[in-house]
Structures are given as structure tokens and as C-alpha cells.
């Protein structure tokens, strides 16, 4: 019995010890977490959004955090769009592999733009989108990118009002007291 007890305690210590080491899987590999996308899907979305609203003299969709807007939107408000995203992204990935032998996120800017222009017109091979259409997915992600970039930061995008600053809109609005009589 005695040895059993020792063994039991030893086992407990081991179990506890291993729990202690669990956190050694530091999350630094994937510092950003998305509720609705895999890391690969996220990098494709990020790349698409950044081409829809690219950085120039002013920050683009990536810096504005548009993907956070989309992630939150699909998580909280429109889970019904998740399917379109999943199918749409799978099509983009397959098509990009077939055309360029590379993942969409890894393509050059010119290649990405060329693909998106064809998608907008519905001219990529339809077989990559058996359950949705390339145009439906393009229109959806375009609308969401615009909303995320130009809407209020309370929804996850437009970080620190980047788009408002670009368009020379002061925000918050300056309003002094508004007295009945001066």
C-alpha cells in the first residue's frame, strides 16, 4: 500500500507539473486570433482587403484592421455569411494555386489585382466556386471591406479613425456647450 500511495502522490505531482508546463506553448506563433477563420483563410482575407483598399500615402485595410471588422461581423451578426466566405476563399485559393502555383496571399500585388479584377467581372473559371459564385463572394467581401474601413471603430475596423483622417473629417465632432442665451 505504502508504495502505492507514494506512486499516487508521484503521479499527482507529475500531473500537476505537466499542467504547469502547458503554458509553454506560447501563443506567439499566432498572435492574432480569429473566431471564424483559420490562419490561412485570415491571410487570404487580409490580402484581398488590402488590395481592395491598399496602403498608399495613407494606411490601407490591413492597418485599419478591416479583417477584425469582418471577423466580428460573421461571429456576432451574420453567421449566415460564414459559409460564403469559406466557399469563396476555398475557390480563391484553388484558383490561385492553379493559375500561379501559389497561395493568394503569396502572390505579387499585380497578380492579386489581376485575379480580383477577373473575379469582379465573373471571368475566372466557375468550377472553383461550385457552391457560391465568384461574383457573390467578391461583392460580399467588397461591401464588408468598405464598411470596415469607413464605418465606426466600435465595430472593429477603421482603427483610430484612419479613414476619417484620410478624408479630413474631424472626429470626434467638436461641440461646445450650447446655451439657450449667450
Amino acid at each position: 500500500m505504502k508504495s502505492n500511495r507514494r506512486q499516487f502522490i508521484k503521479q499527482c505531482m507529475l500531473l500537476y507539473g505537466s499542467v504547469l508546463f502547458l503554458p509553454s506553448c506560447r501563443p506567439s506563433a499566432a498572435p492574432v486570433w480569429y473566431s471564424g477563420f483559420t490562419a490561412q483563410e485570415a491571410s487570404a482575407i487580409d490580402a484581398i482587403c488590402e488590395q481592395l483598399i491598399p496602403a498608399d500615402d495613407y494606411p490601407g485595410a490591413r492597418e485599419a484592421g478591416v479583417i477584425h471588422y469582418i471577423d466580428k461581423l460573421l461571429y456576432q451578426r451574420f453567421p449566415q455569411h460564414k459559409q460564403t466566405y469559406r466557399q469563396g476563399l476555398a475557390g480563391v485559393e484553388a484558383c490561385s494555386q492553379a493559375l500561379y502555383g501559389n497561395s493568394f496571399a503569396e502572390l505579387t500585388g499585380a497578380q492579386q489585382i489581376a485575379m480580383l479584377e477577373l473575379m469582379e467581372r465573373g471571368e475566372l473559371p466557375a468550377r472553383y466556386w461550385p457552391q457560391t459564385t465568384q461574383k457573390a463572394f467578391f461583392e460580399l467581401i467588397l461591401a464588408h471591406t468598405m464598411q470596415g474601413f469607413y464605418g465606426s471603430p466600435r465595430h472593429g475596423g477603421n482603427k483610430d479613425y484612419v479613414s476619417y483622417r484620410m478624408m479630413k473629417l474631424d472626429y470626434p465632432l467638436l461641440i461646445g456647450q450650447n446655451r439657450y442665451e449667450k
Binding site: Q51, L52, I53, P54, D56, I113, E120, Y150
Partner: peptide, 20 residues
């Protein structure tokens, strides 16, 4: 800004550098 992004002359690009 969002409503403005949906309002364009016919044929104007809806996205990309020109949009911005």
C-alpha cells in the same frame, strides 16, 4: 464616408488605389 464610398460616377473604379 461609407455612403460616399458607394456613390460613384458611372464606370468609376469601386476599389483599389483609384477608389481610395
Amino acid at each position: 464616408p461609407y455612403a460616399f464610398s458607394q456613390h460613384r460616377p458611372p464606370g468609376a473604379p469601386r476599389w483599389g488605389k483609384a477608389h481610395k
